[in-house]
Design a protein around this nucleic acid. Structure first.
Lengths: 102, 102
DNA sequence: ACAATAACTTACTTTATGTAAGTAAGTATA
DNA sequence: TATACTTACTTACATAAAGTAAGTTATTGT
């Protein structure tokens, strides 16, 4: 009975179940943001955030843009693939509202 | 700018982003199942599966039922709270179909 | 020149997970 | 009667992932 789960589903779940990844993506749904903003609003350490953003860039879910202003501004935002996660996030919101205590 | 994310959402994401938890729940959506079935279909180790099922029982997402047959049969199934995760899982399926390669 | 800020990276510690063996209860087999 | 087998776990130990804190590079403000 080994491995009855769809590999694509498994991959998606593998991405989302990386610690912090879901919260990082949820945070980015509210618009492009810089490193330190994500760090403090999500509560993830810089070390892990840096790692996750690289992974998400490799998956083409997040894009990184450098604005050579002064001081330099680096913004992370969602690609179309990343934006497509919105309905999923809304479902998590719904479930948490309906089934979890405040 | 600390902690701008809704605590309920954060808790929901915390549950789902535990390694294996999402796949275990997805597997249980197809009906009640025993320990060893989940173990092999999901690919999780017994050690972690045992831990996860206990956590999910404590969260009232999964229930455990003992049938004193021979040999004893123990089945894990979703509560209403667990079943309510179905739309969310469907969204993950959709996203994975649309955006991930096979 | 000195302190400050953003965006990281590195070194080190703690926690989580994987692996494999062990346990308990009951059944079937030799 | 003793041995082996099955399910559902637990325990002990090794490895991988995450947390913490300090360090780096570039640039600005005082």
């Amino acid at each position: 009975m080994d491995k009855s789960i769809c590999p694509r589903f498994e991959k998606a779940m593998g991405l989302l179940s990386q610690r912090w990844t879901g919260l990082i993506l949820y945070q980015l749904l509210s618009g492009p943001q810089r490193f330190c903003t994500i760090e403090s609003s999500v509560g993830v350490s810089g070390r892990v955030l840096s790692e996750r953003l690289k992974d998400l860039e490799n998956e083409a879910i997040v894009k990184r843009e450098v604005y050579p202003e002064t001081p330099v501004r680096i913004e992370y935002s969602l690609t179309d693939k990343g934006l497509a996660l919105e309905p999923l996030m809304k479902e998590i919101e719904k479930w948490s509202q309906n089934w979890l205590e405040a």
